[in-house]
Simulated scan of single mutants.
Amino acid sequence: MPSDPSTTPVPMRCTAVAAAVINGRQVLLIRRSRGTFAGSWTLVSGRVEAGETAWQAAAREVTEETGLRPITLYTTGNTDVFYNPKDEVMEVVPVFVARTNSQEPVMLDDAHDDYAWLPLPRAMETVAFPGQRRALEMIAHFFMDKPPADFYRIDAYRP
């Protein structure tokens, strides 16, 4: 089907990832300390670096932002999609789940100034972005209410 020359499509871009760090029915949220979203509580998130896969970026970001090393890493099959007016693009952000050792201390990077392990309902109320709230609803069903299906596990991930 030919495109309509009287319209301009909004481009899509996928250069970032998000990860929900979970422990049982608790979710780790981190608060951004600077930039446009300073003061916002979010999931772990960040850019995919050159040569990385999306899941590698998610594992790296969890470690860089929180000091935690995922024990297991899962794809959720879910994305956060939102309009970025500054760059005039639709941002597509794959969402992952990272399970970590509950005994490890959280050590934040300098882009974040606080963290909280919250029960899922409270995390859903606290997170700043609607797409992350929707992702947590799905994560509750597929990763917390029952054991995740094997096909979600990223077998290539080795801590």
Score class of each variant (00 low, 15 high):
Ala156Phe: 03
Val17Tyr: 03
Val81Pro: 02
Ala128Glu: 06
Ala57Phe: 13
Tyr152Pro: 01
Arg134Cys: 06
Glu137Asp: 11
Pro70Asp: 05
Ala123Gln: 00
Cys14Gln: 15
Arg158Leu: 15
Val62Ala: 03
Ala135Cys: 04
Gly67Cys: 14
Pro105Ser: 01
Ser40Leu: 05
Ala135Phe: 03
Asn101Phe: 01
Asp109Ile: 01
Glu125Leu: 12
Glu104Trp: 05
Glu49Asn: 14
Thr8Phe: 09
Phe37Trp: 12
Met138Leu: 12
Pro2Trp: 13
Leu120Asp: 03
Gly51Tyr: 09
Val93Ala: 02
Ala59Asp: 12
Asp150Val: 06
Val62His: 03
Glu52Ile: 13
Glu137Val: 07
Glu64Met: 12
Leu108Pro: 03
Pro148Ile: 01
Leu118Arg: 04
Gly39Ala: 05
Ala50Lys: 12
Asn84Gly: 05
Glu49Tyr: 15
Asp145Arg: 14
Phe96Pro: 02
Pro159Arg: 09
Gln132Met: 06
Glu88Arg: 06
Val95Trp: 01
Glu52Gly: 11
Val62Arg: 00
Pro85Gln: 01
Asp109Ser: 15
Val21Phe: 08
Glu137Tyr: 08
Pro85Met: 01
Pro147Asn: 09
Tyr115Asn: 06
Arg134Ser: 09
Thr36Asn: 10
Ala98Arg: 02
Asn78Ile: 14
Phe129Ile: 00
Ala128Asn: 08
Asp113Gln: 07
Trp55Ala: 09
Arg134Leu: 11
Thr100Ile: 07
Ile71Tyr: 00
Asp80Thr: 04
Trp117Asn: 01
Ala54Tyr: 14
Gly39Gln: 08
Gly46Pro: 10
Gln56Cys: 12
Ile139Asp: 04
Arg99Thr: 13
Val62Tyr: 03
Gln103Thr: 05
Leu108Thr: 01
Glu52Arg: 13
Leu73His: 12
Gly35His: 12
Asp109Asn: 11
Ala123Asn: 00
Glu125Pro: 04
Met138His: 13
Thr76Gly: 08
Asp80Gly: 03
Val10Arg: 12
Trp117Cys: 05
Ala135Ile: 04
Gly51Ile: 10
Ala59Gly: 13
Tyr74Phe: 10
Thr53Tyr: 15
Tyr152Ser: 05
Leu136Asp: 08
Thr36Tyr: 12
Cys14Val: 09
Asn84Lys: 10
Ala38His: 08
Ile139Glu: 00
Val81Gln: 12
Asp145Ile: 08
Leu118Ile: 04
Ile30His: 03
Ala57Val: 06
Asp4Val: 06
Arg158Ser: 15
Asp110Tyr: 11
Thr100Ser: 01
Arg69Gln: 15
Pro105Tyr: 00
Leu28Gly: 01
Pro85Phe: 00
Ser102Lys: 03
Phe142Ser: 12
Pro130Phe: 03
Thr72Asn: 12
Val10Asn: 10
Gly67Glu: 07
Phe129Trp: 04
Thr100Glu: 02
Val127Cys: 05
Glu61Arg: 15
Thr75Ala: 14
Gly46Ser: 08
Ala57Thr: 07
Ala20Ser: 05
Met124Lys: 10
Ala54Lys: 10
Thr53Asp: 14
Met124Arg: 14
Ala59Pro: 12
Ala50Leu: 11
Met1Leu: 15
Thr100Arg: 01
Arg158Ile: 14
Met90Asp: 11
Met124Gln: 13
Trp55Glu: 04
Met1Gln: 14
Gln56Pro: 09
Arg99Ser: 09
Glu91Ala: 06
Ala149Lys: 14
Pro130Ser: 05
Ala19Arg: 00
Val17Phe: 07
Gln132Ser: 04
Ala98Thr: 02
Glu88Met: 07
Asp87Asn: 13
